[in-house]
Design a protein around this nucleic acid. Structure first.
Ligand SMILES: NC(=O)c1ccc[n+]([C@@H]2O[C@H](COP(=O)([O-])OP(=O)(O)OC[C@H]3O[C@@H](n4cnc5c(N)ncnc54)[C@H](O)[C@@H]3O)[C@@H](O)[C@H]2O)c1
Ligand SMILES: NC(=O)c1ccc[n+]([C@@H]2O[C@H](COP(=O)([O-])OP(=O)(O)OC[C@H]3O[C@@H](n4cnc5c(N)ncnc54)[C@H](O)[C@@H]3O)[C@@H](O)[C@H]2O)c1
Lengths: 238, 238
DNA sequence: AAGAGTTTGTGAACGCGAGAACAAAATCGT
DNA sequence: ACGATTTTGTTCTCGCGTTCACAAACTCTT
């Protein structure tokens, strides 16, 4: 079907000239990548969209459509070559290169992040740990030493850091964010419960534990109310 | 408009019989709550949708629509009473009651979570810390002692725990999840990079650091490619 | 070589959420 | 009392994302 329309001379990249992958798809690609890595570790060389979808916890039609944005890497009647697809997704996400990140705010959470091995294994190098507390500067965490926030500019320059992680208290988050942006960081992962204002070219993602808990609480409450409602209904109807 | 259609005899709750609030709205209510708390702390008693929207980092039309799902708590020409609205949102989310949570897997991340004060301040009580490692059981963390996983059933029963947090390695996540569900937990917050299978009545939310980083990396890569593309274009055209 | 069986890639239908726009309702000033 | 002003609550439209369904493309068997 597509092969008929696909212009011979064109690049392998299909009709989508803007190269833009839907945001919802981008958010799932890492999940697929993880599923593929797991399959690869189990010596599975080929997998159908159904297999992959199960491993990733999604619907197979959605998975196929998601993959179709990257290109046509499957074989009809067969499935996907696990390692080939894995490489293609990794390339698309940008994991064929290493990324340097800095973590700002080395308290409870910052320590956990600094000690987390899952970073490096996925191509993210922690270039530096930063804190404003003079009492903390110089402490070793893992095999890094905590630096002063004043060294931010030179660290970002020397390591070409594009990604910053904020793990400071909420009150300091905006100021830290501003300094990161001024230093040249253009992607920020924010753990502080604060709304950050940034220039248009900077991406911010937030991870907010208490929001997650509150969402769960809302649904719990609804479940409980449902039970009460059911009870009343039974009592009234029966 | 609606007032004409709104049946006089009906409850204050508008036409939406199912009481269901859109998921996207539910996810924003905690953000509004935080903004309102912050305003309240600054002794602001009334705020317009525009003020609130700015504080919450959203569009004011969206905020008004979100609030309209809860009821009509604003006053036209005036705005919203900060404390009143705050209470209404808290009630809707289910924060007028306290929730007990257990944390399973007290390693790097588990320690950070256990020491986090932001839980209690928002109505979430940590009922217990659990770990399978005998060497860790009995250790104090904050003002709790780490319990054995074997005590899960009795802890959940005694504290009516509805929410469980998983901070174990990915390999143990599904097993821990199963035990939580078997013990009666019906909401799970999962930090392990694993897809969890649960019965239909159980809610799962995941927090996945490396997925967030990968999404940022994708956009970083696109920004960089855009610059290269621009450079080529300039070089060719000029 | 041809037919049966599998599985992909995608067109089409649908539902949800975002945002613009505006009428209704309140306050304020005269 | 009444018009001007402010701000909410809601309607309408549009775009995105999900899902279904199926033709096309591939393999395997006979
Ligand atoms: N600990 C958790 O499990 C957890 C969970 C969810 C969210 N959070 C959020 O993450 C953030 C950090 O939490 P935490 O428990 O690690 O707090 P913490 O108080 O233990 O650590 C904060 C660290 O930030 C440093 N800091 C303060 N101001 C700074 C500044 N201007 N520049 C650089 N560093 C600065 C402090 O010196 C300290 O080391 C908070 O916003 C918290 O709400 C934490
Ligand atoms: N540390 C981080 O910053 C970070 C960030 C993102 C995600 N994560 C994820 O969070 C999880 C925990 O990370 P961590 O760094 O704290 O790991 P960790 O190894 O420091 O801690 C894991 C803890 O879980 C316990 N455990 C293992 N199996 C268990 C079981 N079956 N039942 C109960 N407890 C069990 C271990 O005894 C240990 O105490 C991992 O899945 C990790 O990928 C961690």
């Amino acid at each position: 079907m597509t092969s008929a329309r696909k212009s011979k001379g064109g690049r392998s990249r299909d009709a989508r000239g803007d190269r833009g992958i839907p945001e919802a798809t981008v958010a799932r690609l890492p999940v697929y990548l993880r599923a593929l890595t797991s399959l690869s570790d189990s010596e599975v060389s080929t997998a159908s969209s159904e297999d992959l979808a199960t491993a990733a916890g999604v619907n197979s039609a959605k998975l196929r459509k998601d993959l179709s944005y990257l290109g046509t890497y499957g074989t009809r009647g067969v499935g996907y070559d696990v390692n080939y697809l894995r490489y293609q997704i990794a390339r698309e996400i940008g994991l064929t290169q290493d990324w340097s990140v800095v973590i700002v705010g080395i308290g409870n959470l910052g320590h956990a992040l600094a000690n987390y091995s899952g970073f490096a294994s996925r191509g993210f190098q922690v270039a530096a740990l930063l804190d404003s507390d003079p009492a903390r500067v110089g402490d070793r965490v893992g095999d890094l030493q905590i630096s002063s926030l004043d060294d931010l500019d030179s660290i970002v320059r020397d390591h070409t850091v594009a990604i910053g992680v904020i793990a400071t208290p909420a009150g300091a988050a905006q100021e830290v964010c501003d300094r990161l942006v001024a230093a040249g960081v253009s992607s920020i992962l924010n753990f502080a419960p604060a709304v950050l204002a940034v220039p248009g070219h900077v991406d911010v993602r937030k991870v907010d534990l208490s929001i997650e808990l509150q969402i769960l609480a809302y649904h719990e409450q609804r479940k409980a109310q449902g039970l009460i409602g059911l009870g009343e209904l039974e009592a009234g109807a029966v």
